[in-house]
Each structure stands twice: as structure tokens, then as C-alpha cells.
Write a protein that binds this DNA or RNA. Structure first.
Length: 655
DNA sequence: GATGCCGTGTTTTTT
DNA sequence: ACACGGCATC
């Protein structure tokens, strides 16, 4: 496109994960060649959510958002919902918070309505809550429609009071903005005359609407997708958007991409055979000119520990024998919980790796604590961050004090921070004692001081470091983890890492004007701090199958090919139709491999601290036997390691 | 108000 | 296995 003289700033490319956006940026730079960095960064390459956020940052005030609003992640949403419940005198224990948030998400994105009965099954699968007619009424019944509606309303009101948005708002609010302010819609539609969407099968209806609002005038849209790789239906992805697309842009030209340039013939045949078991799909005939290649290998380790060491040893062996770089290996897992054992084995074997996706670095408590301070400094109305930081590290503000503050805040519909200000300045009657009141005053002073420091200083990282020192977070960690100095140290190390990541952000030439807000935005939409390309080089890639979509590796290990893991037990329990999505997931995993695929199916596996018997995944049967080499014995038994050239010396000197 | 211990449940996948 | 919340105790 650029070669045709199209100005780069008129191009908008949408992806679904930060990882994909990052890869795309890299590839654009590569294609444009050296020195084209500037041209490449003139393109807008963004996830849908990050794009929505930038729209709100710019025009959010038209919807009543104050500057520096906060983006709430799932953890914050849970905290907010519990707050809302507390205020309505509903016992949060009676709520299935996680499912309730799913319901709210469905309502907000208009996937479900209150009239819909679908959500009811979703909320009471175990029959845990609802009919609690026994005895008196300690709290209100938590299972009725009106209660849920009331909670939803309160949840929404609180978001506004706290000057915060949730992930769904990042898509829905820009749509509202476009509807109520056609000029804003016009601005974006005019700016982006060329729109591209990668992994189009993963668009949700609101995301599609957003895309449509931007592209409807110029109609220069290019979408790439594969219905066989649709693996996000659980969060609203709907590949029937492909049909809507054909209707909305009638002059559509369809190009089938059936030639595969990635995988060996054997891998492709296996993948094709598996996916052909799905009923609901566009028929296609993928082919490749690459030769058959090696057989797929399937082995049966005794347990997940053996599986992990098999993978580690195999990687070491092949890296050594074939001089393969570590970053040409990918280890794919279905669930994040599989990662731990594998990480341990990689560490043990001294193999550099990176884990992406999943339990984010930024979700760790110590990081959320410090980030909580940054958030409250930026947006004092953010009650969730206030509650997180008000007594961490401990400063003598306990339950009673917080309750008193809540009373002031609830009554006036103001944030807790405002309530503290009133209390400290004696502008309101309250029952807060002298000690806690002094502590509150100090808290106010601290946040005010850093508000100033952050606005004056351009050194975000240094200022954050100063803050961490001033609140004596290290002292707090030592106190909290008296039993494990190691844990305290590890957490403090994470704080150091966090501060360095702020520093990296500040130094990043792609960021024109680094701000605290910009940094916090970035981390709230990022599952894990993406390593810079240099840092990622030479490292084995460990990730979930979901996170691996769109990526490829010479050698892929697929761990835990067992019934209950893939297909995942909860997925099949939920609904029969989910089996096809699980199969697509398996298909995506297979097709990540260029040269070789290793699968492992453990005989037993440690799950939630208990050893359970495991059974191979039924999907294995769908791979033609002649494409696969089955190793019946425990693969770790026969693995020979390359001789350590220093082994003899080490033995000699007894090191 | 802080601290320590015990019982309970658990997120499948991600923005 | 592990984190989290509740509860008793200092």
C-alpha cells in the first residue's frame, strides 16, 4: 500500500492482541527496510481495545469522563462489584462474582438482554446461591433478576463516580461517542481511509460496528480471517461477521489463501484431518509445496514433571545438535496452570525462555500495590486503587475507619478520596479517631506531594522509585514475609523490574511524549510487559495456545494433550458446541509448527495438589496414524544429553 | 487496629 | 498447592 503512495498516517490496522500488533509493527519495519522506522510508526497499528482507549482519551470528556480516567481490569472489576454489593447490603459471598461479571459484560455489549434466560443457567450452574429461604434474612436474596439489575446499575454508577472504564467500555463508549457526536466519527472516518483487520474471525459485534463506523465512507477495507481459527467465541467473537462484511461492503473481492508457506506436508495433513471433523465451516483445500517432513511425535510421560523435563531435554539436545536458536522453539499449553512445572524444568536446565500471556506480571500483588499509588495520584476518585493503597503499607487505617469513610462517601455520592478530604478538614461529622485521622492526613499529603512531583518531573521511573522508598515498601515486604526472606526479595525484585519497565517506556523512541497516564494505559491493556525484540531473541517461547495464534515456530511442543485439558473439561461441560471450538484450538496449536511437532500426553498429572490419572485426548485419534510416531515408553527414560564439555573438569575439581 | 491460623474454593482461554 | 477471607487473639 505504501508503495502506491498512500500516506502511512491514513492507514489503520487492527489486531486483537498486543503481541500481534507488535509483530505486525516489526514486519512493517522489516519490509520497509532500515531507516523507515519513522514511516512505519506513522501507521496506526493497534488492538481494538487500545484504539478505543485512544479515542476516549481524546474525546472522552464529551461523554463526561474527566481527564486521567482509569482502566479497570478484571481484578478491579471484582473489587468494584463487591463494593457495589456491600452498599446494597448484599453479601458478596452469595454472588458468583466471576459469572456475574460475564453477565454484565454480555448486557453491556448487547450480546444478551435481561429478558434472555440464557444467563440464568450461567449464573447458577452449581445451584450455589439463589434459593436461600431458610431462617431469617441476614442479607438480601442474591439470586433474582431485580437484584442483578440493581447491582448492574450500581456497578455502572460507580464506574462513573470513580472516573473509570472497564474493558467493554473501551469498545462501547467510542461507539456511543460516534453516535452522539457525528463530527468525531467523521474525524476518524476521514483520517483512516484504509482499514485492515487481522484475524477477522475474532471480531465481536461491537468491534465490527466500530470498524464499520470508521470504514463506511471510503470502503477501503481489507480483512483477513480463517473461520477454522476462531477461538474467542467465549468473549463475543462471532465469525458470522464475515457475512455482515460481505453485505456491508458489496463490492467485496474474496481471495482464498489456500497455499500454506509455513508447515511441512505432514503437519498440514494432520491439521487438515483434525479440522475436517468440524461441521460448521467453510470448506477449503490447503496445500503446500514443502515436503512431507518428519513424522509428528507423540509420547507418554509418567507425569507432568516428566513431561516438563522431556521438553527441556529435547530442546537442549536439538539446540545443541542442530545449532538451533532457542527462539525457534515454542511450547504450547492449554491452561496457564501448566506453565509452572515447565518453567521449573527450563530453569533447571538453564534454558532461557519467556512466558507470554496469562497471569500477567502486572497482576501481581506487589505490582498492583505500587501501580495503585500511581493510579490514585493520577485519578484520586478511583476508589478501587484507594482501598488497595490506603493501608498498604500499614499506616493504622483499619476496617472501622474505612467504614466511616464509606458512610460519608455513600451519603454524598462522592469518592472516598473526597470523603477523606472532608473528614480531614473537619467539614463533616465523623467518628474517626485521632490516630487514624492523622494517618489519613498523611495519606492525603503523600498523594498530593506526588501529584506535584509527577507533574513537575519528567523522570517517571525515578519518581516512582522515590515513592516506593518513601512509603518504605521494602520494609512492608520484610514485615509481611517474615517467614520467607526469599519471597520478600523476589517481590522487591519485581518492583525493580516494574520501575525499569517505566524507564524503558520513557526511553522508547516510539513514545512521543511519555506520561504517567500513557504508561498506566499501556500496562492495563497488556497482559505482560512485552520484551523488546533484542531481549526476546534467543529465548524459548512458552505460552498458551490462545496467545500463540498468529505465531509460528520451527519446533513446537504441545503439552498436556489429554482429555480434560484439550478439549478442556469445563468447555465441554458448558455446552456440547464448545467441542468444535476446542478442536479449532487443537488445530491452531498443530499449525504453529513449521518443521516438527511433539505432543505429550501424561499418564498421570498433578492437579490442585493431587495426583490424578490422565487419559490421552480424543483428538489424537483424529490424526492419521501414518503421520505420527508414538513413543510408548516414558520419553525421558532414553534421552541422552550432549556431553557437557566441562563435565570431566567439574568432576575432577568437585564443583 | 494488627497479627496469625485455619478452612475453603479454584480461572479455561484475554482485552 | 495455594491464595484468600474469616475469626480469634494480642
Amino acid at each position: 500500500m505504501l508503495s502506491r503512495g498512500i500516506p502511512p498516517e491514513s492507514i489503520l490496522a487492527m489486531t486483537f492482541t498486543n503481541k500481534a500488533a507488535g509483530e505486525m509493527k516489526e514486519r512493517v519495519k522489516e519490509i520497509l527496510g532500515e531507516g523507515a522506522g519513522k514511516t512505519a510508526s506513522a501507521l496506526t497499528i493497534s488492538t481494538f481495545h487500545a484504539f478505543g482507549l485512544s479515542v476516549l482519551r481524546r474525546y472522552g470528556r464529551l461523554l463526561g469522563y474527566r481527564p486521567n480516567f482509569t482502566v479497570y481490569d478484571t481484578g478491579d472489576q471484582v473489587a468494584l462489584l463487591k463494593e457495589a454489593a456491600r452498599e446494597l447490603r448484599i453479601d458478596p459471598e452469595e454472588l458468583e462474582v466471576y459469572n456475574l461479571l460475564q453477565l454484565f459484560s454480555g448486557i453491556k455489549t448487547e450480546r444478551i438482554t435481561w429478558q434472555d434466560e440464557r444467563w440464568y443457567a450461567m449464573l447458577n450452574p452449581s445451584g450455589k446461591s439463589s434459593q436461600d429461604k431458610s431462617g431469617e434474612e441476614p442479607s438480601r436474596g442474591a439470586g433474582s433478576i431485580s437484584t442483578f439489575q440493581e447491582l448492574y446499575r450500581s456497578y455502572q454508577e460507580h464506574l462513573i463516580t470513580f472516573n473509570a472504564v472497564d474493558f467493554d467500555d473501551l469498545i462501547m463508549q467510542p461507539l456511543t461517542l460516534f453516535r452522539e457526536h457525528p463530527k468525531v466519527q467523521g474525524h476518524y472516518a476521514d483520517l483512516y481511509r484504509y482499514v485492515l483487520v487481522d484475524e477477522f474471525q475474532d471480531t465481536s459485534t461491537p468491534q465490527y460496528n466500530l470498524l464499520y463506523q470508521i470504514a463506511r465512507e471510503w470502503k477501503n477495507v481489507c480483512v483477513v480471517g480463517d473461520d477454522d481459527q476462531s477461538i474467542y467465541s467465549w468473549r463475543g467473537a462471532d465469525y458470522s461477521n464475515i457475512e455482515r462484511f460481505e453485505k456491508d461492503f458489496p463490492r467485496v473481492k474474496e481471495i482464498k489463501l489456500e497455499r500454506n508457506y509455513r508447515s511441512t506436508g505432514g503437519i498440514l495433513s494432520a491439521a487438515n484431518a483434525v479440522i475436517s471433523n468440524n461441521t460448521n465451516r467453510k470448506e477449503k483445500a490447503l496445500w503446500t509445496q514443502i515436503d512431507e517432513g518428519n513424522l509428528l511425535e507423540l509420547s507418554f510421560p509418567d507425569d507432568d514433571g516428566a513431561e516438563a523435563s522431556f521438553i527441556a531435554e529435547k530442546i537442549k539436545l536439538r539446540a545443541y545438535q542442530e545449532s538451533l536458536a532457542y527462539d525457534s522453539f515454542g511450547i504450547l499449553i492449554r491452561t496457564n496452570s501448566q506453565a509452572r512445572v515447565i518453567e521449573e524444568a527450563l530453569l533447571e536446565a538453564d534454558i532461557p525462555y519467556r512466558m507470554s500471556g496469562g497471569q500477567s506480571f502486572f497482576q501481581r500483588k506487589e505490582i498492583k500495590d505500587i501501580a495503585g499509588y500511581l493510579r490514585i495520584i493520577l485519578n484520586p476518585d478511583d476508589d478501587v486503587s484507594l482501598l488497595r493503597t490506603i493501608n498498604t503499607p500499614r499506616r493504622g487505617i483499619g476496617r472501622r475507619t474505612v467504614e466511616a469513610l464509606h458512610e460519608i462517601a455513600d451519603e454524598r455520592k462522592i469518592s472516598l478520596y473526597s470523603a477523606i478530604t472532608l473528614a480531614v478538614h473537619r467539614e463533616v461529622d465523623h467518628s474517626i479517631g485521632k490516630g487514624p485521622l492523622g494517618a489519613l492526613e498523611e495519606y492525603l499529603e503523600l498523594t498530593a506531594r506526588y501529584q506535584e512531583r509527577f507533574s513537575e518531573s519528567k523522570h517517571l521511573a525515578a519518581t516512582t522509585e522515590r515513592l516506593a522508598t518513601e512509603i518504605d515498601y521494602w520494609g512492608y515486604l520484610v514485615q509481611e514475609f517474615q517467614k520467607s526472606e526469599r519471597a520478600a526479595k523476589a517481590k522487591w525484585k519485581n518492583i525493580g523490574f516494574f520501575i525499569r519497565s517505566i524507564d524503558r517506556y520513557e526511553q522508547n523512541p516510539d513514545v512521543l511524549e511519555p506520561t504517567l497516564q500513557g504508561y498506566l494505559n499501556r500496562i492495563s491493556l497488556q497482559t505482560r510487559d512485552e520484551l523488546s525484540p533484542e531481549e526476546a531473541a534467543g529465548k524459548v517461547n512458552l505460552m498458551t495456545i490462545h496467545a500463540a495464534k498468529g505465531l509460528e515456530f520451527d519446533v513446537v511442543f504441545l503439552a498436556g494433550v489429554e482429555e480434560g485439558i484439550i478439549p478442556h473439561q469445563r468447555a465441554v461441560e458448558e455446552s456440547e458446541g464448545n467441542l468444535e471450538e476446542e478442536r479449532r484450538l487443537f488445530y491452531v496449536a498443530i499449525t504453529r509448527a513449521r518443521q516438527q511437532l511433539y505432543m505429550t500426553s501424561c499418564r498421570r498429572r498433578q492437579v490442585q495438589g493431587e495426583m490424578i490419572e490422565a487419559v490421552p485426548s480424543p483428538f489424537i485419534e483424529e490424526i492419521p496414524a501414518e503421520l505420527m510416531l508414538k513413543t510408548l515408553a516414558d520419553p525421558t527414560a532414553g534421552v541422552e544429553m550432549p556431553e557437557d564439555p566441562f563435565a570431566a573438569l567439574k568432576a575432577h575439581f568437585g564443583s
